[in-house]
Simulated scan of single mutants.
Amino acid sequence: MAAAALAADPSTALRLLREGTLTVHGRLTDASNAALYCTVALDDRTAQAVYKPVAGERPLWDFPDGTLAGREIAAYEVSAATGWALIPPTVLREGPHGPGMVQLWVEPDPDAEPLLALQDPRGAEAGWLPIVRAEVGGGRTALLVHPDDERLRRLAVLDAVLNNADRKGGHLIPAADGRIYGIDHGVTFNTEGKLRTLLWGWAGQPLPAESAEVLAGLAEELDGALGARLAPHLTVAELDATRARVAALRVTGAHPLPSEDWPSIPWPPI
């Protein structure tokens, strides 16, 4: 089963990730914390995965509690609860270097349409939404844009719920099954507003009816089964802040605006 198809079959993927034999093949050198490329095998099925052991995490002053791995698991649980399947199947388990996050590896589709582009600074082309003006050298500027794509819009809503502080372009994976997956959710769920993303194209716009329905479901589940699943990975304050963000989105009925007190674009952006 191809990775994209396996990602769309979470029950099979989660069992493989939890119970399979994990073999480390190397380290992802562009990651700021230990991220190991692996295969996981169970019965007659083998898949690629990324394993991020807790022992390889570097402390972050603004995320003093919990672990990056725990927040990755919490992000997956919220994504699964939306029904949108925006994050590849993810588990917390023992590995060769101790407990850590293990996530199904989804290869980007080389034939997928681009998710970011530089365009004329005077305005975005039809079908694209502006993010920010960027310096491109020689005193010239260009407009950084992303597509007006419902798949990305769902991710923008999820990031607002998660308070994602690091939605880089490289964290968006267009898969062969037509889905767009988000990865790297270790810096999420802060109690302070830290939303940094490249998906600002809908800022201030009304939320689609679909998103309003999903947020209503999340509000209910956060006070029930979803809240119980998140509790081992988040502090009480972080869980309360998540409920508050969902409530605020439902009250405003709109995509959030960039904060004036916090950089709105991650660095590096790609």
Rank of each mutant, 00 (worst) to 15 (best):
I131E: 13
Q48A: 08
A112M: 06
A228Q: 15
E77N: 07
T12G: 12
A74I: 06
L68F: 14
V251E: 15
G204Y: 02
L226A: 02
V106W: 05
D159C: 00
G83L: 14
A49F: 06
R167S: 03
D65L: 08
I265Q: 06
L68W: 10
L92A: 14
A175R: 07
K52G: 04
L6Q: 01
G70R: 03
L215S: 00
G83R: 14
A7S: 07
R151D: 13
G95D: 01
A248G: 10
L42A: 13
A8Q: 15
R167H: 03
L152T: 00
A216K: 09
R58C: 08
E19K: 14
L118S: 08
D30W: 11
L162V: 05
A75C: 11
E125N: 07
A237K: 11
D223Q: 10
A134I: 07
R151K: 12
G137A: 10
L42D: 13
S11L: 13
D43I: 10
R18C: 11
A241R: 03
A3N: 05
D30M: 11
W262T: 14
P266W: 04
L199K: 00
A47D: 07
A75M: 12
L6M: 12
P110S: 02
D166L: 05
T12A: 14
L239K: 07
E94P: 07
P147E: 07
E192C: 11
V40C: 11
D177T: 08
A134D: 01
N164M: 06
R45V: 15
G182R: 01
K52A: 02
M1S: 10
S79V: 09
V214K: 01
A85H: 11
A175Y: 07
L222W: 02
G186A: 09
E192G: 13
V132Y: 10
A75R: 13
T29N: 09
A35V: 15
P174N: 08
A142I: 02
P208Y: 03
S264W: 10
A75D: 12
